[in-house]
């Protein structure tokens, strides 16, 4: 019988180990993405849990859209697939008298999880009426709608929809991320960034401070500066 010294055995073990590890890396790298993703959804009848007796058959597909801004009843609404922006605005009770109707393309086609933000017509300090810039005329895909409801408002402006003009502005020191996300050019990520900046550095002293938030450059700031305020300013 062939004698193998401990020293040789040690090297054999190490080489075997390195081969094992290398083969795992190689197989993983070679076959990464080679297998189709497995959908494991199975029919209700196959779920053998007593609790699932409460489950009914899947509903027909329905879209959920989020309507915010100058509508009478902002919120998330269920809508038939293939609907238009006009349908969603109707479900939300129609425009308020402050809505910038020209900024929204009522004929645009909807899609599931769309967010329709109706911008207000802004009153400038000099008294002239102007239109909010960069309106979201077409529905945009946002984070998945979290709920489907029929009437409760999802957002509200401080001071209420029909209060004085100054109160129509969003207070960047008190507004939450979902309200900030209704501003033109400010999506969910930027609104989160504003809230994070505020949490980290304290309240904004002036709306100009918004430009300190990463991602808000001159253009974005110009688009929102007429729509925001800090406290009573």
């Amino acid at each position: 019988m062939m004698y193998i010294s401990d020293n040789v055995k040690k090297w054999l073990f190490m080489i075997a180990g390195l081969i094992c590890i290398a083969s795992v890396f190689c197989v993983t790298a070679l076959f990464r993405g080679a297998f189709a993703s497995r959908e494991e959804i199975i029919p209700v009848s196959a779920v053998s849990q007593t609790d699932e007796s409460a489950l009914a058959a899947p509903e027909p597909e329905i879209w959920a859209v989020y309507v915010t801004g100058e509508v009478l009843r902002p919120g998330v609404y269920e809508i038939e697939p293939g609907g238009r922006v006009d349908d969603a605005i109707r479900l939300a009770g129609g425009f308020t008298r402050l809505a910038d109707r020209d900024a929204v393309n009522l004929a645009a086609k909807l899609r599931d999880e769309a967010h329709i933000a109706v911008p207000p017509i802004i009153s400038r300090d000099d008294g002239a009426k102007t239109v909010a810039q960069t309106p979201r005329a077409a529905p945009q895909t946002r984070k998945p709608a979290a709920a489907v409801k029929s009437s409760a408002p999802a957002v509200s402006y401080p001071g209420g929809a029909n209060s004085e003009e100054g109160a129509q502005k969003i207070d960047i020191n008190t507004a939450d991320a979902s309200l900030l996300a209704t501003l033109p050019g400010i999506g969910p990520k930027l609104s989160q960034a504003i809230v994070a900046y505020r949490d980290e550095n304290g309240p904004f002293g002036d709306i100009e401070d918004l430009r300190n938030v990463g991602g808000i450059g001159v253009k974005r700031f110009e688009a929102v500066k007429a729509l925001v305020k800090t406290g009573n300013r």
Binding site: I41, V44, A54, L55, A57, P58, E59
Partner: peptide
């Protein structure tokens, strides 16, 4: 490999 519950309605 536990099965996912398919979309539907629940009352529990």
């Amino acid at each position: 490999s536990q099965a996912e519950i398919p979309p539907g309605k629940v009352d529990a």
